[in-house]
Deep mutational scan, measured.
Amino acid sequence: KEQQNAFYEILHLPNLTEEQRNGFIQSLKDDPSVSKEILAEAKKLNDAQA
């Protein structure tokens, strides 16, 4: 469930490039146990690119 939530949120971050988004999603698939950390990174990058 946590992985699904992170997946959904990353898909809807407006400021990520397609490449960045795909990278985060691939990381989620590779290691779902760190989905919280991956989501935090994605949000940080999204904010930095706002």
Rank of each mutant, 00 (worst) to 15 (best):
S27L: 13
P14Y: 12
L45Y: 07
P14I: 10
L11E: 13
I25G: 02
I10F: 03
D47P: 01
I10T: 01
K29D: 09
Q20A: 04
A6H: 06
I25K: 05
E37R: 06
D47E: 14
L13A: 03
E18C: 05
Q49H: 07
E37C: 04
K36E: 12
L16V: 03
L11W: 06
L45C: 13
L16S: 00
F7E: 10
S27K: 04
E18Y: 06
F7S: 05
P32T: 06
T17C: 01
Q49E: 07
S33V: 06
A50V: 12
F7L: 14
Q49W: 08
L28Q: 01
Y8H: 03
P14W: 07
S33P: 07
S33T: 14
E9A: 04
N5C: 04
A48F: 13
S35F: 15
A48R: 15
K43D: 03
L11I: 07
K36Q: 08
K44E: 08
E2T: 03
G23T: 15
N22M: 10
P32D: 09
L11R: 07
E9L: 02
I25D: 01
F24L: 13
L13Y: 12
Q3S: 03
Q4C: 06
Y8P: 03
D47I: 12
G23W: 10
D30F: 10
L45V: 14
Q26G: 08
E41Q: 10
K29F: 09
H12A: 15
D30R: 12
R21N: 01
K43L: 10
G23H: 10
I25R: 04
L16K: 00
D30E: 08
G23I: 11
E37I: 09
K44A: 05
N22Q: 09
P32K: 07
N46E: 03
V34I: 14
N46M: 03
Y8T: 09
Q20W: 01
P32C: 04
N22H: 07
V34E: 10
S33Y: 13
K44W: 08
D31W: 12
I10V: 10
S33R: 13
S27A: 09
L11D: 07
K36A: 14
K44C: 03
E9H: 10
E41W: 08
A6Q: 07
K1V: 15
A40T: 07
S35I: 15
I10W: 02
D31R: 14
E9K: 09
E37W: 11
L39S: 05
R21A: 08
L39C: 04
F7W: 15
A50I: 14
Y8K: 15
A50L: 09
A6M: 05
N46G: 03
K29H: 12
Q20D: 05
Y8M: 14
N15C: 05
L39R: 04
E41Y: 11
F7V: 12
A40D: 14
K36T: 06
K36P: 11
D31A: 12
N5I: 15
I38A: 04
Q26W: 08
L28M: 13
E2F: 03
S35L: 15
E2Y: 03
T17Y: 06
F24M: 06
I38S: 02
Q20I: 03
F24N: 00
D47K: 11
Q26K: 03
S33N: 12
G23F: 09
A40M: 08
Q26D: 10
D31N: 13
L16I: 09
N46S: 12
H12Q: 13
G23D: 08
A40Y: 07
N46I: 01
D31C: 04
K44M: 15
R21F: 04
P14S: 11
S35M: 14
F7H: 15
N22C: 04
F7Y: 14
P32A: 12
Y8Q: 04
A50K: 04
K36F: 09
D47S: 14
Q20T: 02
L16F: 01
L28K: 00
K1Q: 15
E37V: 08
E18G: 09
H12G: 05
E19D: 09
L13D: 01
V34S: 14
I25C: 03
D30G: 12
F24P: 00
F7P: 02
E19I: 03
R21V: 06
L39N: 02
N46P: 00
S33Q: 15
L13V: 01
E9Q: 14
Q49A: 11
P32V: 07
E41L: 08
P14Q: 15
Q4W: 11
A42N: 00
E18K: 09
A50T: 14
A40C: 04
N15S: 07
E41S: 14
D30K: 07
I38R: 02
K29T: 14
N15V: 02
P14T: 12
D31I: 07
A50Q: 13
A6G: 04
T17R: 07
S27G: 10
Q49G: 10
T17W: 04
N22W: 11
S27W: 11
A6I: 04
K1P: 15
N22L: 07
E2Q: 03
A42H: 00
Q26A: 12
K29E: 10
E19Q: 08
Q4A: 11
S27M: 08
H12N: 10
E9V: 13
E2S: 02
L28R: 00
Y8D: 08
I25P: 00
S33E: 06
E18W: 10
A48V: 13
A42K: 00
N46F: 01
K1D: 15
F24I: 04
D47V: 13
L16E: 00
K44N: 10
A48C: 04
Q3Y: 15
D47H: 08
N15R: 04
F7G: 04
I10D: 01
K29V: 09
L28E: 01
Q3C: 02
F24V: 01
T17G: 04
Q49F: 08
I38H: 02
P14D: 12
K44Y: 10
L45D: 02
L28A: 05
L45E: 08
E37F: 13
R21K: 09
F7M: 15
E41V: 13
E37Q: 13
L13F: 08
D31M: 13
E2C: 03
E18T: 08
S27R: 14
R21I: 10
L28W: 05
P14G: 08
I38V: 06
Y8L: 14
T17M: 05
S35P: 06
D31L: 04
P14R: 13
I38M: 03
V34W: 14
A50N: 14
S27Q: 02
F24G: 00
K29N: 12
A50M: 11
N15I: 02
E41P: 00
N5P: 06
I10E: 01
L11M: 02
H12V: 11
Q4P: 04
D31Y: 15
S33M: 13
K1T: 15
Y8N: 12
N5H: 12
L45S: 03
A48H: 14
H12C: 04
N22Y: 14
Q4Y: 04
I25Q: 06
P32W: 14
E2K: 01
A6F: 06
Y8W: 06
S35K: 06
D47Y: 07
I25N: 05
F7R: 10
L16P: 00
A40L: 09
G23N: 12
E18H: 11
Q3G: 02
K44F: 12
L39P: 00
L28P: 00
Q26L: 11
Q26V: 02
L11V: 06
A50P: 07
D47L: 09
A42I: 02
T17K: 05
Q20R: 02
L13G: 00
I10N: 01
S33D: 14
D47N: 06
K36H: 06
A6W: 08
K43T: 08
L28C: 04
G23R: 11
N15D: 11
E18F: 09
T17S: 04
L11H: 12
H12K: 12
P32Q: 05
K1N: 15
E18R: 07
K43M: 11
L39T: 07
S27C: 04
I10L: 07
Q26I: 10
K1E: 15
E19C: 04
Q4F: 09
V34K: 05
S27P: 02
L11P: 02
A42C: 02
T17N: 09
L28D: 00
N15Y: 08
K44P: 01
L39Y: 08
Q49I: 14
S35Q: 07
Q20G: 00
L13K: 01
Q20V: 03
A42Y: 01
L11G: 08
A6L: 13
V34Y: 11
L45K: 04
L13I: 03
G23S: 08
K1C: 08
L16D: 00
F24T: 00
E19L: 10
L39F: 03
I10Q: 01
A40K: 12
E19G: 02
H12F: 12
L39Q: 06
S33A: 06
N15Q: 02
S35E: 08
K1H: 15
N15A: 07
L39V: 11
P14H: 06
L16H: 00
Q26S: 10
V34L: 10
K1W: 12
L45Q: 14
F24D: 00
E37K: 09
K1S: 15
I25V: 11
A40G: 09
Q20H: 01
A6S: 14
A50H: 13
A50G: 14
D30Y: 07
S35Y: 15
S35V: 13
D30Q: 05
Y8V: 13
V34Q: 09
A48E: 13
E9N: 12
Q4T: 09
N22F: 10
F7Q: 15
N15H: 14
K29C: 03
F24K: 01
A48K: 14
Q20L: 03
N46H: 04
I25M: 09
I38L: 05
I38T: 13
R21S: 03
Q26C: 05
E9D: 06
N5W: 15
S27H: 13
L45A: 07
E37P: 06
K36N: 11
F24Q: 00
L13S: 02
P32R: 06
Q26R: 01
N46Q: 03
P14E: 03
A42G: 02
L16A: 00
L28G: 01
L16W: 00
V34N: 09
L39E: 06
Q3A: 01
K29W: 13
L13Q: 03
I10R: 01
D47M: 11
Q4I: 05
P14K: 06
E2D: 14
G23Y: 13
I10Y: 01
K44V: 11
T17A: 05
L28F: 06
K43Y: 10
A40H: 13
Q4H: 06
R21D: 00
N15W: 14
K43N: 12
N5F: 05
E41I: 13
Q49D: 04
R21C: 04
A42Q: 00
P14M: 13
I10A: 02
N22P: 00
E37Y: 09
N5A: 15
Q49V: 09
E41D: 09
L13P: 00
D30S: 12
